[in-house]
């Protein structure tokens, strides 16, 4: 999607168009960065990097889904940061064997609504790949097609990845082995 090198500095009209088309998705960009990186200042820096990059490559964006285009850039910036800071966990997400089966305890069925801290902790324990797909779907309301664009995955894999991410999240919320997430149960 992105060309090898940025185009020349944008003119006034392009600048205005950028502010009108891309800037409105700043919240979406920050939210994704915040969930991928954790810290507030890291998320701000990554969002700023991503916006600058989007601006440099704006001439390659002609029309279409500006939010998905921007979030793809945000994601790349975040993953670069994670790798550089050795916080990268290269998990094989197809391997579900290590994940314990979720228990059908009463708690499973009664995840309390508005239990913000518990959900936050559980989400933070997921791998970035699972976390991003849940954030894009449940918080950002992206369609499968948009998620496929943003995460550079084949469209056909989104549904099963989402199913596994939800399963893992529920395990983290309910399994006794994950004490951290169970603290308030």
């Amino acid at each position: 999607m992105l060309p090898d090198s940025p185009t020349n500095v944008l003119n006034q009209d392009d600048r205005s168009r950028f502010e009108a088309i891309v800037m409105p998705h700043l919240d979406a960009a920050y939210n994704l960065a915040r969930w991928l990186l954790g810290g507030r200042s890291e998320a701000e820096d990554a969002t700023q990097d991503a916006m600058l990059r989007a601006y440099k490559f704006f001439n390659s964006f002609h029309s279409g889904d500006a939010r998905a285009w921007l979030l793809q850039i945000v994601r790349n910036c975040c993953y670069t940061w994670l790798q550089k800071n050795r916080k990268w966990v290269d998990v094989d997400e197809l391997d579900d064997e290590s994940v314990p089966r979720e228990k059908d305890t009463p708690e499973t069925l009664a995840i309390r609504v508005s239990d913000r801290e518990r959900l936050t902790r559980a989400l933070e324990q997921l791998s970035p790949q699972f976390r991003e797909i849940l954030v894009l779907r449940e918080l950002e309301g992206c369609s499968y097609k948009e998620i496929a664009t943003i995460t550079s995955r084949p469209m056909g894999t989104i549904m099963s990845a989402l199913a596994r991410a939800r399963h893992q999240l529920r395990v983290l919320l309910t399994d006794p082995a994950h004490k951290e997430a169970r603290l308030e149960l």
């Binding site: 700043l26 919240d27 960009a29 920050y30 939210n31 915040r34 969930w35 507030r40 998320a43 701000e44 969002t47 995840i111 309390r112 609504v113 508005s114 239990d115 913000r116 959900l119 936050t120 989400l123 849940l134 449940e138 918080l139």
Partner: peptide, 12 residues
């Protein structure tokens, strides 16, 4: 639960 937990972080 995800919907009602206000997990969305808006840009500061």
């Amino acid at each position: 639960a995800l919907e009602e937990s206000r997990l969305y972080s808006r840009a500061p």
